[in-house]
Amino acid sequence: MAEETIVLRVQRYRPEQDSDPYFQDYEVPYRKDWVVLDALNWIKEYKDGTLSFRWSCRMGVCGSCGMMVNGRPRLTCNTFLREFYPNPITVEPLVNFDIERDLVICMDTFLEKLKKVKPWIIRREVKSPEEGPYNQTPAQLYRYKQFSMCINCMLCYAACPVVGMHPEFLGPAALALGVRYLLDSRDQGWNERMEEVGSHEGVWGCTFVGECSEVCPKHVDPAAAIQQGKVLATLDWFKRWLMPWGQK
């Protein structure tokens, strides 16, 4: 019996020789338990060693293998071929990012945005290790826990039309992390973080399309984080102007 196959239409771009990206078709063995990333690795191993793409853990944890699969931002390690078989599958690099090579995107813009929200705990009073940890009740943890599950896969950036049209918008993942730290009882960096999160390029840039939450593989719900960030920014504004003496 002839082996079942499936066609992968892969977008290629080799900066040293191509002026524009183009599509290349690869016929790949079809296996029910293969994901798109398995097929890409098969191509790299047996058909075309020049094909470039990022991947690492193969289990939806590292966030490296995000690509456009039939026009939707997906982690290729948990997108099965059987979802599309026998139709061909189109694989492109994530949109809203420049292309470095083939399926590899430039992450520079995202990393700059991530840095802006200072995604770490800021303390004015630092405890020494002998003084013990910064304790937190389960209720305090649950306020932000969901927003801390982000794996920086950037699918939400590819899903967000605002990111596409206004590249200066900080974007879903960075803002969700910013809000995550605003909601963390151990954090003391409210004012400096709110300057970025509560700005025009921050939560107020969001028009609440909500697609970031639809594509998020970790159910972080960045759209919810951003809308809650808007509430926090509004309360913060009132506090600053109505009670200037009450600043943290």
Binding site: P15, E16, P21, V95, I99, E100, M165, V209, E211
Partner: peptide, 28 residues
Amino acid sequence: MRRPYHRSYPKDWWLRHPHYRRFMLREL
């Protein structure tokens, strides 16, 4: 050699997925 390729965002983005069309309908 680094020569990043820039793609411009399609003007008809909101026609490209039912979720986007629904968003536009909500706003309109």
